[in-house]
Design a protein around this nucleic acid. Structure first.
Lengths: 218, 218
DNA sequence: AGGAATATTGCTCAGTCTGCAAACCTGCCT
DNA sequence: AGGCAGGTTTGCAGACTGAGCAATATTCCT
């Protein structure tokens, strides 16, 4: 199970998390308003009322500010993968963990959909997002390898499963648009089912049903 | 079928290709010698004996110089995907096309293995490589979508297949080390078989056989 | 309260990347 | 051969990024 939110205990850590979130929100907002390329670090820092130097203390680049996940995601994912029943196959494990994690994403639905729309409209952002996802993929691969008692550097299997799973998540996010017919849960579940079936020629059905989207949990 | 090499006809185009290749080679060589972070664009330009400004005319960044594929790869892949028999399933198509393309990679075996070793030793390069692979993935997705008569922006299936296939290629390249037990062909074929089987719990066998690597075709 | 630990900030500097205009080279036509 | 047209290389200038360092401010803990 992935914990609901970052749990900063002290005032210091809470403030730090606040600044981090504010920087990310401002980056996203300004990128939507003025176009990603036209947003400077200075402008973001000014919007959050910190010095440009402070921005660099949190993020090493603009795209990291746009796409960096919850800083605890690594530990959370690793723990969640390890916690799955031992008899589950790796792909099942990742499916369960990522579907579980999607609750987390749904809670920030507007921000995520805005992010993905930004990427869809600015193709030059796609590689930058992929770069962030690659870190995510490494975490998954290591988690799988740990479960299987394999060495991810010498055994290609964990990387293969992690790559397919991360791809499914990426695709699901890209197609999780405001007016989409399927909820993120449904989409992810369907994509993982397709992976488990060996990517048959024609998927069961896609974008067919007419479910309403999940409601805001906030 | 993917054509053997870029066929620049005129002197102008040949020169241009030469400069491009020289810049890529120099980038790789210098990165190995001095570490990626310590290589400047100025140094690369000087090694190739062009102005730093010219480097920017060919590549928009250092990582592009390191990882950018053959500039014709997009058209070649698209054509190769379209040329496969109509009754082949998308995953089979990509498997066939990428295994075919691996001949191309094997011809540049030393460069590729050096590249991958560089990435393995410098984790910060992984996201940059992933960024380049994402363009590759888009090409695959569009090729699949075209074959299936689907819209890649509204149908997640092409993206899912392309993501899995690109992941397989990435993993295969990462594990295609000088002393590896399996050839790149074998590795790729095995990984695609695993994908087609729905990523079963335990792959048939990995890193088990003791085949010699393929010989230099040059 | 007071010391230790951590965060923020300004300063500075090397490096990246882009636009622009001049000089240069190749391909092609007369 | 000569010369024009279009593409390529180059130098220059300028904006932005990203990192180290030291000073300052804030929070934590005893």
């Amino acid at each position: 199970m992935i914990s609901q939110e970052v749990p900063p205990v002290g005032l210091r850590e809470r403030k730090k998390a606040d600044v981090r979130n504010a920087l990310q929100d401002a980056t996203l907002r300004l990128a939507i308003e003025h176009g990603y390329e036209n947003v400077t670090v200075d402008a973001i820092a000014e919007a959050v009322d910190v010095s440009p130097r402070t921005f660099s203390n949190y993020f090493s680049s603009k795209e990291e500010a746009l796409f960096a996940p919850n800083p605890y995601i690594s530990e959370q994912l690793t723990a969640a993968i390890a916690a799955r029943p031992a008899d589950e196959a790796p792909l099942e494990v990742l499916a369960a963990v990522l579907v579980d994690m999607s609750d987390h994403l749904i809670a920030r639905r507007d921000a995520w959909q805005a992010r993905m729309r930004l990427v869809a409209e600015n193709p030059q952002l796609r590689p930058r997002m992929a770069a962030q996802f690659s870190r995510f993929e490494v975490i998954l691969a290591q988690g799988v390898a740990l479960r299987c008692g394999r060495d991810p550097t010498s055994d290609p299997y964990p990387g293969l499963v992690a790559g397919a799973a991360a791809g499914a998540l990426r695709v699901a996010l890209a197609h999780w648009q405001p007016g989409a017919a399927q909820s993120l849960h449904e989409l992810l579940t369907e994509l993982f089912a397709s992976l488990a079936a060996g990517l048959p020629d024609v998927p069961p059905r896609t974008a067919a049903t007419d479910h309403p989207n999940e409601s805001h949990p906030s």
